Each structure stands twice: as C-alpha cells, then as structure tokens.
Amino acid sequence: MNNDLLKNWLEKQSSLVLDGAMATELEKRGVDTDNELWSAMALVHDPQAITDVHRSYFDAGANIAITDSYQANVPAFLKAGLTAEQSGKMIFDSVKLAQKARNDYAETLEDSVRQATPLLIAGSIGPYGAYLADGSEYTGDYELSADEYKGFHRARMQLLEEAGIDLFAFETQPNFEETKALADLLTTEFTGISAWLSFSVTNKAELCDGTPLKDAVDYFNQYPNIVAIGVNCTAMDNIEGLVKVIHDATDKPIVVYPNNGDTYDPKTKTWQTNPHAVPFSELVPKWQAAGASLIGGCCRTTPDDIQEVAETVRK
C-alpha cells in the first residue's frame, strides 16, 4: 500500500469515519465472546456474522473497517485447540471477510460515488496484553524483550498483509516498549505498508504503563510509516483533552475511537450502562476542533453510533 493513501484521502475529506465495536454486534447475533479468544471466536464458529457486522458499519457510513483480528493470534488459536495451519487461515480470513463486506457495499454505490468514497481495511493488531486475556491491555503490566514482542506480532502481521489490508491498526496499545518494537518491525519488515498507532491510556494523559502520552507521541514522529496517532478504548469524556495533548506533540493525523459512555469493570468483565452519556453528535465537533480527523467507536458502540458520527462529520 502507498503510505500516502490515508493522507491523500484526508486531503479530499477533512475527516474519515472508522467503524465501531465488533464483539457487541457479534453478541447480538448469538456469538459467545465470553472466552479468551473474545470476538475472534466468531472466525472459528460464525464467519458470516463478522461479514454482516462489517457490512452494517459500511451501511452506517464508515470509511474504514477494522479486521476481527485484535485477539486473533497464532498462540491464542493453538491454545484453543486449532492447528498452526488453521490458526493462520483464521487470521487471513479476518481480512477476506471485511473485504467481502466492503465489496458488497461498494456494489450498491453509483460509480461516481464509489470513486469518491474511501473504503479501507485496517488490519487490527492488539497488544500482547490482549493475548494474556487478563485485562493487561488496560494496565500495560507485562514485559518482554523487543525481539520477543516482534516474534509475537510477526506472523499475524505477515498474514494480514498477505491477505491484502490497506494499513495496520496498532490499537489499544498500553505498553511503550511494545509499541517501539511494533514500529521497528513495521519499518524493517513491512516496508510497503503503513499503520496508525492508537494507545490505551489512563485519564491522566499517560499510557497505561505510566509513559506520558506527549512523550510517546513525540517518539513516533520519526516514523513516516506511522501515518496517524491517537487513542481508543477510553471514555468519551477524555477524548477532547487527549486530542489536545496529541496535537501539541505531532503534525500527524489524529485517530480517536472511544467507548460509548458505558463503564467497564475489567475484573468482572461486565459493563454498566450510562444513561447520561453525551451523544456523539455533541462531542465529535469538539474532537474535530481539537484536531482529530479519524473518528469512530470502540467498545459497546453500534452502527447507530457510527451513523451519528458519519452524519456529524459530513455536516
């Protein structure tokens, strides 16, 4: 992929819309995500549901689909009883399912609209902490060497690239050392493809491992193939302030996709609905004014939320 693809689209449109939650929508379709594979279990048991979720987000106005590979990595599949070959196929298929949804959606558009509408596939790379399945993506409390991080992520990145993603999404990343290893791996072994980097943060503008967000963002200015930087999987209320911190530290496009306003307890792995959550239609203009240009939703967000984001962005 041309590393300027995202930049070129953002020059034509001031903001692009990401999709929303995968697991939430899979659960509505009867997929059991209460396991160590989480939403990746659908790759094994109900791939059509994944395509249907991706299609629902394109229909809602999303420009970018994020593959169902956040928790999909070879060690996790092996632990679940799949062979190495089956594990690789699951990761490869996560791209093909998103591409099918994109292609089916594109066929509903008139030629002129299709050519003017960015429809991209971002290959999700969750952190090592997601593989641990103990809430570590919200603490960053784990430690491997740079080579060990690269060894963990390499096979999944190779499979996603081979399947034809447009860019990587290094997302919900809580651990600064891991993100450095990912950027180095991208630069040395995946030279034809770019990535956005989205951190998992506390509400104090720090990565979950305690690294100041400003310092982390500044570090990745040296990587031209990290084409956007931001945060995801945090409260909507935190976004405006975090975008301002990021904007002060980089000229790269800023990506944000928060949760929907409900609150999560990582110990009990349960959500509490927040009836007082401020709607996206009120918050998105503030995020754009602060500097965000790639906007979507993370946990608990729905196609209705993404439609609200898309309609707000396109006003």
Rank of each mutant, 00 (worst) to 15 (best):
I246D: 04
T188H: 14
S200Q: 07
L167I: 09
A155N: 14
F152Q: 03
I239H: 04
V256R: 02
Y264V: 06
T188I: 11
T191R: 14
Y223K: 10
L182G: 07
G241K: 10
D209V: 00
P212M: 04
D218S: 15
C233P: 00
E178L: 08
I165G: 03
E177H: 11
A235I: 02
E171N: 05
F199K: 00
L207W: 00
F168M: 13
P212T: 03
V245Q: 01
K180N: 02
S194L: 09
F220A: 09
I165S: 04
T211R: 01
I246V: 12
T263F: 06
N232I: 03
I226F: 05
L182S: 10
D265Y: 11
L167C: 08
Y257S: 06
V255I: 15
G151F: 06
S194M: 12
N259D: 11
D262W: 08
G192K: 13
E206K: 09
F168H: 07
P224E: 14
K204G: 05
L197S: 05
T234L: 07
T188L: 14
A181P: 09
L207M: 14
K244W: 07
V245K: 01
I254D: 03
Y257N: 08
Y257P: 03
C208Q: 14
K180A: 10
I254S: 03
T202K: 02
Y219V: 04
Y223W: 10
E171K: 10
K252Y: 13
T211S: 02
L242M: 15
F190Q: 09
L167M: 15
I229K: 00
Q158H: 09
F168D: 06
S200A: 15
T202W: 00
L186I: 12
I229W: 01
L160C: 09
W196L: 13
T211D: 01
E178N: 09
D237N: 14
T179F: 02
V243D: 01
F176H: 13
D184F: 11
L182V: 06
N260I: 08
M157R: 09
P253R: 10
V243M: 07
H247P: 08
F170R: 11
F176S: 06
T187D: 15
V256A: 07
Q222P: 11
K252P: 02
L186V: 11
G261S: 07
T191L: 04
V243L: 07
D215H: 10
V243R: 05
F176G: 01
T172C: 04
L167P: 07
A169E: 05
I165A: 12
E177S: 12
L213M: 08
G230E: 00
A163G: 12
G210D: 05
K150N: 13
A249F: 08
L186H: 10
I246Y: 06
D209S: 00
T250Q: 01
G210T: 02
Y223I: 06
G261W: 03
M236P: 14
L185D: 06
